[in-house]
C-alpha cells in the first residue's frame, strides 16, 4: 500500500510512454489518437537516415558529448586528489565552498552569464581583448567557438560538485595506510599514486560506465539555451532536434523515431561499455 502512488505514477509516466514508442512505427494523427493511427513500419527511420541533417546531428551530438566527457570526467578527480592533499585546511574549506556554488546556478542563468560576458558590445571578455587591440568578437555567433564554450562552461559549473563523490571516497581511506607509507619514506606523489588513486578507481569506473550510457542524450536545456541561428551547424543535437521536430512542428511520429534510435544506441553503448569494463578491470554495474 505504501508503494502504490509511486507505482501508479511510474507506470503511467514511464511505462506507458515505453509502450507508446510504437508511434515511431505509425503515422500519428491527432484525430485517430495513439493507438488508432495507421502502421507505416520503418518509414520514419528511413526518412531520418536519408535526410542530410541526420549525419550532421549525430556527429554534433557525439563530438559534443565525447568532448564534454573528456574534459569533465578527469578534472573533478584531479581536483579531489589535490584538495585532499592540501595542507591548509581552512583554505581548503573555502575553495570547496566556492567551487560547489556554481552547481546551483540554473542553466538559464548560466547561459545568460555566458552571453553577457561574451557579448561583442558590452561583454567583459571583449573589453579585455580591446585593451590588447583585438577587435570585438561575437563569440556566440562563432560556430568554431561554440563547443568550447559549452564544454568549458560546463567544467566551470560542475567540477567542484562532481569532485564531492571522489572526495568522500578519499575520506574513507584508512589513515593507517598513509602513516605506514610515510614511515617507509614515500613522497606525496607516491602516496597519491598508490593509495589515493586506487581507492577512487571503482567509483570513477562506475561513473564512467554510466556516462557512456547517456552519451547520445546529452542535455537539451543547455544546448537549446545557447543555440542561435549563427551556430546552428554545430549546436543542433539529437535532443534539440527531436524537440523542434516533435513539439514545435508537431511531427510526432518522426520525432519519436529519432528518440527511439537515440535510446537504443544508449542502451547498446551502456551494455557494451559495461561488458568491456568488466573484462578489463573487473568493475561492472552488473
Amino acid at each position: 500500500m505504501f508503494c502504490l502512488p509511486g507505482i501508479i505514477i511510474t507506470f503511467i509516466f514511464h511505462y506507458i510512454p515505453l509502450y507508446g514508442v510504437q508511434i515511431a512505427f505509425r503515422k500519428y494523427s491527432v484525430k485517430r489518437g495513439f493507438w488508432g493511427s495507421e502502421w507505416v513500419g520503418l518509414q520514419h527511420f528511413v526518412r531520418f537516415f536519408n535526410s542530410p541533417n541526420a549525419v550532421q546531428i549525430i556527429t554534433n551530438t557525439l563530438i559534443l558529448s565525447l568532448y564534454s566527457l573528456a574534459a569533465s570526467f578527469p578534472i573533478p578527480i584531479l581536483l579531489a586528489l589535490f584538495l585532499n592533499s592540501m595542507r591548509h585546511r581552512r583554505y581548503r574549506k573555502v575553495i570547496q565552498t566556492v567551487t560547489y556554488a556554481p552547481n546551483f546556478i540554473s542553466i538559464i542563468v548560466m547561459c545568460g552569464m555566458l552571453i553577457l560576458f561574451l557579448s561583442p558590445r558590452i561583454g567583459i571578455i571583449n573589453k579585455l581583448l580591446e585593451l590588447f587591440g583585438v577587435e570585438a568578437i561575437n563569440f556566440m555567433g562563432l560556430p568554431q567557438a561554440w563547443r568550447h564554450i559549452y564544454v568549458w562552461s560546463g567544467v566551470w559549473q560542475t567540477m567542484g560538485w562532481s569532485s564531492v563523490v571522489y572526495f568522500a571516497a578519499l575520506s574513507g581511506v584508512s589513515p593507517e595506510y598513509h602513516e605506514a607509507a610515510v614511515v617507509d619514506g614515500a613522497t606525496k606523489l607516491q602516496r597519491i599514486r598508490y593509495i589515493d588513486f586506487p581507492s577512487i578507481l571503482p567509483v570513477a569506473v562506475m561513473l564512467l560506465i554510466l556516462s557512456f550510457g547517456s552519451l547520445l542524450s546529452i542535455g537539451f536545456e543547455k544546448a537549446y539555451a545557447l543555440q542561435n541561428d549563427l551556430n546552428r551547424t554545430v549546436s543542433e543535437i539529437i535532443s534539440t532536434y527531436t524537440y523542434k521536430v516533435g513539439i514545435v512542428d508537431s511531427n510526432m511520429s518522426y520525432s519519436a523515431a529519432i528518440g527511439l534510435f537515440n535510446s537504443v544506441v544508449n542502451a547498446v553503448l551502456l551494455v557494451t561499455v559495461n561488458w568491456v569494463s568488466g573484462k578489463i578491470s573487473g568493475n561492472a554495474l552488473w
Binding site: F13, I23, F34, T242, S255, G259
Partner: peptide
C-alpha cells in the same frame, strides 16, 4: 520485483514524444 521495476526506468525511457503525448492525454 518492485526494485527492478524502478531501476529499469533509469536505463530505458520512451523518449520525449511518447511522454509528452501521455501527459497531454492526462
Amino acid at each position: 520485483v518492485i526494485s527492478i521495476f524502478y531501476v529499469l526506468t533509469m536505463f530505458v525511457s520512451g523518449g520525449l514524444i511518447p511522454t509528452y503525448l501521455v501527459v497531454r492525454s492526462a
